[in-house]
């Protein structure tokens, strides 16, 4: 690693101020950032740790004009999200959070860190996009459809910090992950959520453009929420990732299989 200092502010405002210098970077759980720093692929002058900001560590139900939603502080670790949502109206979220990485990673990695990084194989982007959630920052609220902008790209601007994530509670939902055997990230992950006004399907791991919504499936499922509804759909494989672990055609196929399984598990 290159040399850098760590500053540990206790408020969001102080963190934003500390990040004002462009060479500084925010440090959440560090589970992706630290391996990157080890490779010397980033050279921050200062890391601004968000771990001391208590206002980022909360989780609870809230309700708004569009119904109930979970309000989750960006600093919540995967383990704590899993624990806090274990019982109640949204156990799918608990299962997703409880299957990110491994137990030790889940004790450090945070929902805000995961979303800010937007790894194309991460699980949370599929959840947030699949629920039509909202990413709240120190400056604004960003709808999920606007937030995710491709591989490791988000709508976040310089000095902008995620403070909360709002996740609407669906009627039923499920997430199916087919893991890449080495990294254990999603080779393909599909999140399916049924709301009163329709169905959303979000896919991670598969596309060269990062997380995306499978609109044909959403249309089909909004009329008939059953595995057979997606049977005749074809996932176009032109934008799929092709690598050591799977061809484009294989990933496109897995999207369909995982979607079907998510529906079956949800109902």
């Amino acid at each position: 690693m290159y040399e850098f200092d760590i500053e540990k502010p206790s408020t969001v405002e102080a963190a934003v101020a500390a990040l004002a210098d462009g060479d500084n970077m925010a440090l959440a759980g560090g589970q992706t950032l630290i391996p990157t720093l080890k490779q010397r692929l980033a050279a921050p002058e200062k890391l601004v740790s968000l771990s001391g900001i208590d206002s980022l560590k909360h989780i609870g139900m809230d309700s708004g004009p569009d119904g109930d939603f979970w309000r989750i502080g960006a600093g919540m670790t995967h383990a704590h999200v899993a624990l806090e949502t274990e019982d109640g109206n949204f156990t799918t979220l608990s299962r997703v959070a409880g299957n990110i990485g491994d137990p030790a990673v889940r004790n450090r990695g945070t929902i805000g860190g995961s979303l800010a990084n937007n790894d194309p194989s991460a699980d949370y982007p599929a959840v947030v996009l699949g629920l039509g959630g909202t990413v709240v920052t120190n400056r604004r609220e960003i709808q999920s459809g606007d937030y995710f902008q491709g591989l490791f790209e988000t709508a976040l601007e310089e000095g902008e910090i995620i403070t909360e994530v709002h996740l609407p509670v669906p009627e039923i939902s499920n997430y199916q992950k087919f893991v890449q055997p080495a990294s254990r990230f999603a080779l393909v992950g599909v999140f399916v959520a049924k709301f009163a006004d329709g169905v959303r399907v979000a896919v991670t791991g598969a596309s060269e453009d990062g997380v995306f919504r499978w609109s044909e499936a959403e249309t089909a499922l909004s009329g008939d929420f059953s595995a057979s509804a997606v049977e005749d759909l074809q996932m176009e494989d032109g934008h799929m990732i092709e690598d050591l672990h799977g061809t484009r055609a294989y990933r496109a196929h897995l999207v369909k299989v995982m979607t079907r399984r998510a529906i079956q598990a949800a109902v």
């Binding site: 760590i6 540990k8 560090g30 630290i34 890391l47 740790s49 030790a104 990673v105 450090r108």
Partner: peptide, 10 residues
């Protein structure tokens, strides 16, 4: 936690 993926100062 993985102590190789956490800073001592943290």
């Amino acid at each position: 936690v993985k102590s190789c993926t956490m800073f001592a100062q943290e």
